[in-house]
Design a protein around this nucleic acid. Sequence first.
DNA 1: ACTCAGGACCAGA
DNA 2: TCTGGTCCTGAG
Length: 300
Amino acid sequence: MIIKAPIDLELTQVSGQTSQPPWIKTDDSYSDLVCIDTNPSIFHVKQCGENIDFSYTGNISEKQAISKVSEIYDLDFDLSKFYRYLDGHDELKDMSKFCNGLRLFQAKNQFECIISSICSANNSIKRWTKSIYDMKFKWGRNFNNYYLFPDTKSFNDIFLDDEEELLKNGSVENNNLKSCGVGYRAPYMRKASEIFTLEMNLSDISKMSYDEAFETILKVPGVGPKVADCILLYGFGFREAFPSDVWIKRIVSYLYFDGKDIKVEKVREFGMDEFGDYAGYVQLYMFHYARKSGLMERLK
DNA sequence: ACTCAGGACCAGA
DNA sequence: TCTGGTCCTGAG
């Protein structure tokens, strides 16, 4: 069925948003396994004009499926209103044409989003993507050759590295976190998983204010300000988050501060003050505008 | 063989 | 409170 909401599916998929890696591409469509409550369902989306054509298999209602796919691709967000906002500001007005149809790629699973955001820190998109696929393939439940991200309970049982695998399993068969190329992030990821099993509750965070949620999630090892904002934006829908890394710093500095070097922490505060509820979207658009317009090359 | 990029964290000022 | 070194890996 066609869902009426303009989107550039390809752009949204490959834009490196840390909620989840791109879905599996086959011919002209993107597919992945999604869980609704405990029911697995395979979602297929393909570009159809400016909208997407959506279909699914699995034991869930059409209403549930549409609601979930709309959430993941953020289809209720009013893009044209956002473009009017961008067009109304000199610093932002080129962005809509470079990123037309780009939407937030919201997490289909919050735990996956948390681990995957921790994994993205100080990493490259390419390596990060491969690590997440590896983890799903090695330890995720499998339906029709699609894999779920492992849940907290099974994640807790994954060996950290060769040493631990050898000690507890007697042999080494790349059945550990480090074998997925996550490096020193492995212990962070496992600690985070333990925390979300025992101490922190995902649904509690959803109910908090942005500030409270930010402070709470910062306590998780491997989660600093940038990763916290990614988790809150993509995993919990806090649109006022403005995830700030070196690239956003360079872009904001170029657009708003005459190229002056400013602290990432200041960039974050600036973004939140300046863009309000559009902060998350502006951050996403800034990054892709810089990529596509050639600005990024010049800022290196 | 070497240097570099990328956030979080920790020790020491 | 801030600064600078270190962590791991793949790419150049």
